[in-house]
Amino acid sequence: MRSVMDVLPYLVAAWVFLAGCYGLATSRNLIHAVGCLSVCQAGTYVLLLAVGYRNKATAPVFSDIKPGSRPVVDPVVQALTLTDIVVGATVTALLLALVVQIAKRHGTVDPDELSELRG
C-alpha cells in the first residue's frame, strides 16, 4: 500500500491532463473543446498541490491554531494554484467569447468545418 500511495496523485494528475488533451484534440464542438481545456488545467492543479503535500500536516493558516504547533503544508504551491484557478476562469470566458464570434461569422462551431479563414 505504501508504494502505490507515493505515486498515485502524480499519476492521477497525468491521467487527467492526458484525458483533457485527448478530448481537446478529438472534439467536434468548440465549446466541448473549451471544457476539455479546463479539465487539462484541473490536472495541473492536482499536480501542484500533490507536490506541496506533507503527511499528517495541516493548512498553513494560523487563524485558529497556534503557529508551530502542527506541521504545515507548503503554501507557495497553494498561492500559485489559487490565482491560476481564477485566471483560468477568465481565460475560459475569453475563449467562449471567441467561440461565439466564430459561430457568428462562420455559422458553425465544428473545428473540422472551419477549414478556410474568413470574416
Binding site: 498541490l49 506541496g52 493548512a59 503544508v73 497553494q78 484557478i85
Partner: peptide, 8 residues
C-alpha cells in the same frame, strides 16, 4: 480540502 488547501 483533503490535501489541506482550503484557500484553493
Amino acid at each position: 480540502t483533503v490535501l489541506q488547501a482550503p484557500d484553493v
